[in-house]
Design a protein around this nucleic acid. Structure first.
Lengths: 233, 233
DNA sequence: TTAATAAATGTAAAAAATACACTCTATAAT
DNA sequence: ATTATAGAGTGTATTTTTTACATTTATTAA
């Protein structure tokens, strides 16, 4: 049982880039915490944690996310592993980053407060520890790629949303203006949304119809060779 | 210096999915080795190795690739980290996979022979150890994505190549037939190739003109907002 | 009744993708 | 010298997709 004993062992951590969307402010936000231990205690950091003996990387990332937000089974993908020798000044730690999309209103406020977690606007991020800023940058690039080709935007919106809200979300992620009519045309043509009878009447007198993303419809059209694509001008 | 000492440490390895292209057989090949140590000694495996204390993940992957092929500074990207608890039956090992594109003729034959490395056709892969098969599948998917949107195909071809060779490479990676005229039209229009005066005259009497990929031209058009796209019918 | 505000809508033009079959060139065989 | 062969190379019309762009509609509060 010591076939590998001549090799070195390492601390392995996971870090989570947790994206949320603020509908009112039309902004992507990141869930950051004040680091609770040394080194760099008290500094802004991604949610992270060390991997345990009996859990996979994916499980560790889920645990970290869940311990901060109370959420399980949310959208989470592995991003990249960061393995520079000196990335953590304290010791050699290899970190696998995961990015995740959640609905801000779904988090357990008590839990996140206890862990000193705060939603920070992507546009004015504080300084982050270690290489966490480049993790965020890479995750944002990945989000910008995925939002065009997979229906991941709905992970950031409530069950019911208006086309204007969806449109604003896309503008926030693309970080540019897009054509409203072409956007609506394209998403409607995809036939993966259901229009509800209900209207959102807070932001306008006329009100905007709510829509719902129908995962089953999406799966069905994908089987028929459909490729999601919202790379609109 | 023991801030993290309550946490577990792990063996960390890298595995390399090394792709090559066989022009004559029009096939993508994988560089596999006969594993030289237990467990699973003698079985087919990806090129891999344990990470050392003083090297980054990227450096470890480069070392593994180089020790098997003699090659440095080739196309290599991190793919994914595999962290299932029981993925290696001997001990907990977390492995970060890298995929790489090389020119088969460039490898140091003596080195690769010594390591019992063999090029295997992707179409009839032998059984691989642990989770290496899923690493290969994931890498192949990634290659199929990247070949469409980045000029990575040229990494698999010699400096000089004919349009027929490039076309065959794309068919091999897409795993479907594509339209010859539309393909030629599209790649020529991109203006990133230089036509040479020389002809390849082995495979036909008439001969086919050699072309060369001009990286500088590619970089220039990218700055002008050009997006490489060879997703042709 | 009217003013105000955001939601919703359609069409024409341009660009890109697709489908498709014959000619050209060089050599080797007669 | 002529011809057969085999792979390299080429153009156009049609369809589909993308783009650009401005007015009308619905509701409420004044």
């Amino acid at each position: 049982m010591k076939l590998y004993s001549m090799h070195s062992k390492f601390y392995v951590a996971v870090d989570c880039i947790i994206f949320g969307y603020d509908i009112a402010e039309k902004e992507i936000k990141l869930l950051l915490i004040k680091r609770s231990f040394e080194p760099a205690k008290g500094n802004w950091s991604l949610a992270g944690g060390f991997v345990n003996e009996d859990e996979s990387l994916d499980a560790a990332a889920s645990r970290v996310l869940s311990s901060l937000t109370g959420l399980k089974n949310v959208y989470m993908k592995q991003l990249h592993s960061y393995g520079e020798v000196k990335r953590d000044p304290e010791a050699r730690v290899i970190s696998t980053a995961y990015w995740s999309l959640i609905k801000i209103k779904d988090i357990d406020k008590e839990l996140s407060d206890k862990n000193e977690a705060h939603w920070q606007s992507l546009k004015k991020l504080p300084k982050l520890i270690f290489d966490h800023k480049s993790m965020v940058d890479n995750a944002m690039s990945e989000l910008q790629v995925q939002i065009k080709i997979k229906p991941v935007g709905f992970e950031l919106l409530p069950e019911k949303f208006t086309l204007v809200q969806l449109f604003d979300l896309y503008e926030a992620i693309y970080q540019r203006t897009i054509d409203k009519r072409n956007f609506r045309k394209k998403i409607i043509t995809m036939n993966i949304l259901e229009k509800l009878d209900e209207k959102e009447k807070v932001t306008s007198k006329r009100g905007a119809y709510y829509f719902r993303f129908i995962k089953e419809r999406y799966k069905k059209v994908v089987l028929g060779g459909f490729y999601f694509n919202l790379d609109v001008n």
